[in-house]
């Protein structure tokens, strides 16, 4: 006779609901990916495997330039935000609380709290004025905006890493004749590196995914991959969009896997 224990944590219907949730969560994404390899032009009728839509997307100049622009902005924003966030994290952790520290925290986390549409509109207003005043129309505005809203995402893992770091290691370095700069380059930075890389990955993904702020800040002809996709809405949907989405997804998953590997606790 099978023995059935009374499982206290079991609640009726919960497991079923959870499984349904996971199916609903993944079904659209998987469908989207599968049909990116469709031989036909439908997003619902399967006509055999083909890389045709990837080829079409690849040969589409608009897609190509949007991809390059997305990667350029994401790379620049990731580097800038990570450097600035690392400095800020070093400035705000592991020292006595100082006057104004709360102001720094609020400013750094501000992009997480303000709805993106509000920031987007505010940037549109401000940058419109700056564009008129300076005549500069380049990618700088997008890079500045992306770098700014990526700062909190880069800041969090770096700060977590710093707070988990053994302070005595730096004390030991100074005891062993390292100057402040030598301590930083020989001890602090190598130990901080996983956090810095994790922050950079996260910032890259966040920048790559952004739609709203980019949509409002970009000048004419400055589409990124997401804003290009948004612009294609009015057209008939072909698996080309699926192919672009799948490529974007792939890039995100690679970055996230790297992020998880970097932040995973040893042992």
């Amino acid at each position: 006779m099978a023995e059935r224990n009374f499982e206290v944590s079991r609640l009726p219907g919960f497991a079923t609901t959870a499984i349904i949730v996971f199916i609903i969560l993944y079904l659209p994404i998987i469908t989207l990916m599968v049909y990116s390899f469709n031989g036909g032009a439908s997003i619902a009728l399967w006509e055999g495997f083909s890389l045709r839509w990837y080829e079409i997307a690849w040969n589409n100049d608009a897609v190509k330039s949007a991809t390059m622009r997305s990667l350029t902005i994401a790379a620049a924003a990731s580097v800038i935000s990570t450097v600035l966030a690392s400095m800020a994290a070093l400035g705000t952790t592991r020292r006595d609380k100082f006057k104004g520290q709360t102001v720094i925290y609020v400013l750094i986390n501000q992009p997480l709290m303000v709805p993106e549409i509000v920031t987007a509109v505010a940037l549109l207003i401000f940058f419109a004025a700056v564009k008129v005043a300076t005549g500069y129309q380049g990618l700088g505005y997008l890079i500045a905006a992306h770098s700014a809203f990526c700062i909190p995402f880069a800041y969090l893992p770096i700060r977590a890493r710093l707070e988990g770091m053994d302070l005595t290691l730096e004390v030991a370095a100074s005891d062993l004749y390292a100057s402040s700069w030598q301590t930083f380059t020989n001890v602090t930075l190598p130990l901080l590196m996983p956090g810095v890389l994790a922050g950079a990955m996260l910032a890259f993904v966040i920048s790559l995914d952004d739609v709203i702020i980019t949509e409002f800040v970009k000048s004419g002809g400055q589409d990124t991959l997401p804003t290009y996709m948004l612009g294609q809405l009015r057209r008939a949907i072909t698996p080309e969009v699926n192919a672009i989405s799948t490529a974007l997804l792939g890039l995100t998953v690679v970055m996230l896997t790297a992020f998880f590997l970097l932040t995973r606790k040893k042992n």
Binding site: L84, A85, A88, G91, A144
Partner: peptide, 17 residues
Amino acid sequence: NGWLLSAPALALLIFAA
């Protein structure tokens, strides 16, 4: 030093956020 290290990030956030 805390302020100096945070300053560049704050400057960018004030400028673009």
